[in-house]
Design a protein around this nucleic acid. Structure first.
Lengths: 129, 129
DNA sequence: ATAGAATCTATAGTAACTATAGAGTCAATA
DNA sequence: TATTGACTCTATAGTTACTATAGATTCTAT
């Protein structure tokens, strides 16, 4: 299939597919006579792997590492574990930050009942302090 | 004070300060004879406002809007309210995403006890499906 | 033969910074 | 007085993960 169909099947935009190829996350596909990219179901699986990783917010660099690791199936998977643990730590950190952030925003929202002037607005006062 | 001291007092890097100035978040400071930027305590307050907003993850564009709003103190603060509400919605959305993400990552981490080969690793299997 | 759709490459834009190069300024020392 | 070193200046490029555009080709259908 050509890139248009590949894009629809995978749910990735055409530009993103070409970008992933440039970045080495997808193998260089075969080309048609007229230089159009040609994909098969194997390529689709590869792209789905990448998409799944991205949905977990794993960076393109880490995905590249995972792909390399996949190509050495006989080795220990401790690096894979480490990568996921690291990702989990990142997520926990961000969640903590977001919780604090949410608390402050909520407090600010309640600091301004509704219809003040900007001068009297509790939100601006909070931000100013 | 010159930018070095301003940077230390505010906790913003020198580049970031100059960047905020270019982006219109800080007023153009006076310059010394030799063209060095000169800041006073008023400028510090302005920068602290920006920093506080950034710590709440408010975008530079929205901060710019807040600054403009601050300059019309007699008007209604409903726009300020709306902006904070919108920010809160964003945070809630991201928290929800992160919770889902965390759940999947945890499940993956537990799918691989510890010392498999990559071929047998539950994590890679999950990512492949 | 030709119109229109799809594809190609190369390049620039996005957000919010960070980092660098190369030049100029300033205060203190030899 | 000359010079060293710290500080600052502007302009530009790099970061991440894409998205968008321009201009040229290729293919398909009438």
């Amino acid at each position: 299939m050509k890139i248009g169909e590949f894009s629809k099947k995978s749910g990735c935009s055409i530009q993103t597919i070409r970008y992933y190829e440039r970045e080495g996350l997808l193998l260089n596909p075969n080309r048609s006579e007229g230089n159009f990219r040609l994909y098969d179901s194997k390529a689709l699986k590869q792209l789905e792997f990448v998409k799944h990783c991205r949905s977990l917010d794993i960076s393109l660099n880490d995905i590249k590492r995972l792909i390399e690791l996949k190509n050495t199936p006989e080795e220990s998977c401790s690096s894979v574990n480490a990568l996921i643990d690291q990702q989990l730590a990142l997520v926990n950190k961000r969640m903590k930050e977001l919780r604090a952030l949410k608390a402050e925003l909520q407090q600010m929202a309640s600091a301004c009942g509704s219809d003040n002037t900007i001068e009297a607005c509790g939100i601006i006062k909070t931000l100013d302090s």
